[in-house]
Structures are given as structure tokens and as C-alpha cells.
Amino acid sequence: MIAVLGLVIGVVAGLLVRPEVPAVVEPYLPIAVVAALDAVFGGLRAMLDGIFVDKVFVVSFLSNVVVAALIVFLGDKLGVGAQLSTGVVVVLGIRIFSNAAAIRRHVFRA
């Protein structure tokens, strides 16, 4: 419950406060958000499986974000930034879908 509250408060704060994102971070924010989403779905699935460990969740969340940002950064330096970020989004999307399918089986039993 508190976790859900945290998400809601974060969205509201982002909309209300309107923080200025530094230009250096800006290109990596969308990819980082998608990576974090992947970690969250993974965590939810682990919780439903009964194997959720908060330490694993924190590490996977942070490493997902950092690795995704790193890949995009590297892609930009190599001149294939657009293609690489598309690739990252596709991979993360597939993972999110498979996690969502597992969650669905737990919640709806179908």
C-alpha cells in the first residue's frame, strides 16, 4: 500500500513541481523510465511468486536504469543513438510483456 502511495505521490509531485531537468540527463530520462518500469513489473511478479526480496528489487531497479542510460549514452557517442535506444525499448518492452503475462496468470488465474 505504501509502495503504491509512493508512486502516486511521485506522479503528482512531478506534475505540480515541474522540476527543470538538466540538459545532460534529458536524453536518458525516457529510457531510464522504461527500464525502471521493467524493474517494477519484475518486482511485482516476484512478489506474486512469493520470492520478493527488497534488496534484489533495489539493485535490479538501479542497475536497469544505469545500464539503459549507459547504452543510450554509448549509442550517442557511436552515432547509433536512435537505433540503440529503439533496441533497448524493444527488449524492455518484451520483458515487460512477459512479466505482465505472469502477473496476469497470478491475478486472474488465466
Binding site: 505504501i2 523510465v33 518486482g43
Partner: peptide, 27 residues
Amino acid sequence: PRVTRAQLTVAALLFVLGLGLAIQVRS
């Protein structure tokens, strides 16, 4: 609602995620 260490950590990370999401959508 139970205040446990796991709930608080996940809440903090989800807060960061929500913030990033909102900023990105807005921009």
C-alpha cells in the same frame, strides 16, 4: 498498510519512477 522496510524502499523507488514519468510526459 504496514510500515516495513521492504514497503518503504519500494515506495522510495516508485516515487522516483513516478517523478521521472511525470517529468517526461510533461516535457
